[in-house]
Amino acid sequence: MSNNILMLVLVVSMIVAGCSSKEKEKNEDNVIERVVASDFVLEVTTPTVLSTGETIKVQGTLKYTGIKPVEVFHGKPIIRFSFSGSNEERNYADVGYVTEFKSGQVVEVEDEFIVTKKGKQNLFVDMTADISLTMNPIEILVK
């Protein structure tokens, strides 16, 4: 009977290990890029390996780390994405918006593009604010 229990434990642990390794592989294809300037931190999360026909989902997070509230003038959305591996274009509102950032405040922007081009592509991240944050293009491999 103890051999049956030992075998059951072994099989269950192998199943759990197999499931977790697949999740890990999937997470290894994501990257988080970070840029810090004065009292702001910009983070972008994106997959880095895709296939044509898939949808790339990207997320940008802007966090204010300063202590005193500060007004920021910007377009909408404050974080903008463009992807060289897609034919999609965005029509953004460049009308002046003002956001008062308080300590610890976070703004999140998500976008997605349908992947249409193979090879090495770039995700471009742009800020439409009077904050000087520049992020290098993020390379994405499309199979």
Rank of each mutant, 00 (worst) to 15 (best):
S2W: 14
N3I: 11
L6E: 11
V9Q: 14
V9I: 15
L10A: 13
L10S: 15
L10V: 14
L10I: 12
V11S: 08
V12K: 12
S13V: 07
M14C: 11
I15Q: 08
V16S: 10
A17M: 13
A17Y: 09
A17K: 09
A17L: 12
G18R: 06
C19I: 10
K22V: 15
E23Q: 14
E23F: 13
E25T: 12
K26Y: 14
K26P: 03
N27P: 00
N27A: 15
N27C: 03
D29N: 15
D29E: 12
R34Y: 00
V35E: 08
V36D: 07
V36C: 01
F40M: 01
L42E: 05
E43P: 02
V44C: 04
T46C: 07
V49P: 02
T52C: 00
E54Q: 15
E54A: 03
T55A: 01
I56Q: 06
Q59D: 06
G60R: 05
G60L: 00
T61V: 11
T61Y: 05
L62C: 01
K63T: 15
Y64I: 03
T65L: 01
K68A: 08
E71N: 14
E71L: 09
V72Q: 05
V72P: 04
F73V: 15
H74M: 09
H74G: 06
G75R: 11
G75Q: 05
I79C: 06
F81N: 07
F81G: 05
S82I: 07
S82E: 10
F83Q: 03
F83S: 02
S84K: 02
S84C: 03
S84R: 04
N87Q: 11
N87W: 04
E88W: 01
E88S: 07
R90H: 07
N91G: 05
N91F: 11
N91V: 02
Y92M: 06
A93N: 12
Y97P: 00
Y97F: 12
V98Q: 06
T99W: 03
E100H: 03
E100M: 14
F101N: 07
K102T: 01
K102A: 07
K102I: 04
S103R: 13
G104D: 09
V106A: 00
V106W: 07
V109E: 11
E110F: 00
E110S: 14
D111G: 01
F113C: 00
I114D: 08
V115G: 01
T116L: 07
T116R: 09
K117T: 14
K118A: 09
K120V: 14
Q121K: 10
N122G: 05
L123D: 08
V125H: 02
D126T: 13
M127I: 13
T128Y: 02
A129C: 08
A129W: 02
A129S: 15
D130A: 05
I131L: 10
S132N: 14
P137M: 03
I138N: 01
K143A: 01
